[in-house]
């Protein structure tokens, strides 16, 4: 068999040696185009489709589970909110009534000695603080902060996934 001096590999190597970049690129492209292709079996395609199907089924199961968990969480939160909200409201009403009675007595007493507005404001703030700062209200506030932080974390994860998907879509 006689060697053909015009074969792509010879053209490529000669073009590279002579630094003819365009010719080298063209010859290399034609050389690579002739290289044998990787063959995949029909079994690979079937395995892949099977993986796609099972992944889709898993995704559906996960979505269903996530929706169930979310629904339960919403229901529990709503029930807890109603219970805690009712207790808080009753507590607050009692405190407000108590503060109102005390305020009335103090105002009546103070009117005898002359009103000082800064003292009135200080008493007013103190009464509100006392009424609001119950253990239950603190617990509700902390719970709301925890729920808020978890929601922010979940949102960040969702946005991250969405951003990655958008980056792929841009290509």
């Amino acid at each position: 068999m006689q060697t053909n001096p015009n074969q792509p590999w010879r053209e490529w190597l000669e073009a590279e040696a002579q630094e003819r970049e365009d010719a080298a690129d063209a010859a290399f492209a034609s050389l690579m185009a002739e290289a044998p292709r990787v063959e995949v079996s029909a079994a690979f395609v079937e395995r892949t489709m099977s993986a796609v199907r099972s992944r889709r089924a898993r995704e559906r199961r996960l979505q269903w589970a996530a929706r169930t968990v979310a629904a339960v969480a919403v229901a529990v939160t709503a029930a807890a909110g109603v219970w805690a909200g009712g207790a808080l409201l009753a507590d607050a009403l009692a405190n407000v009534l108590l503060a109102a009675v005390r305020g009335l007595l103090w105002t009546t007493e103070a009117m005898g000695g002359g009103l000082r507005w800064w003292a009135v404001l200080a008493r007013f703030g103190s009464a509100i603080g006392t009424a609001a700062a119950t253990p239950l209200s603190m617990a509700v506030l902390v719970a709301l902060q925890v729920v808020g932080a978890l929601a922010m974390y979940g949102m960040k994860q969702l946005l991250g996934d969405e951003q990655a998907a958008q980056e792929e879509a841009r290509v």
């Binding site: 690979f44 395995r47 892949t48 993986a51 796609v52 992944r55 995704e59 998907a165 792929e168």
Partner: peptide, 10 residues
Amino acid sequence: QEAFARAFDR
């Protein structure tokens, strides 16, 4: 295979 499955998801 993983790439095809992920591409399908997305």
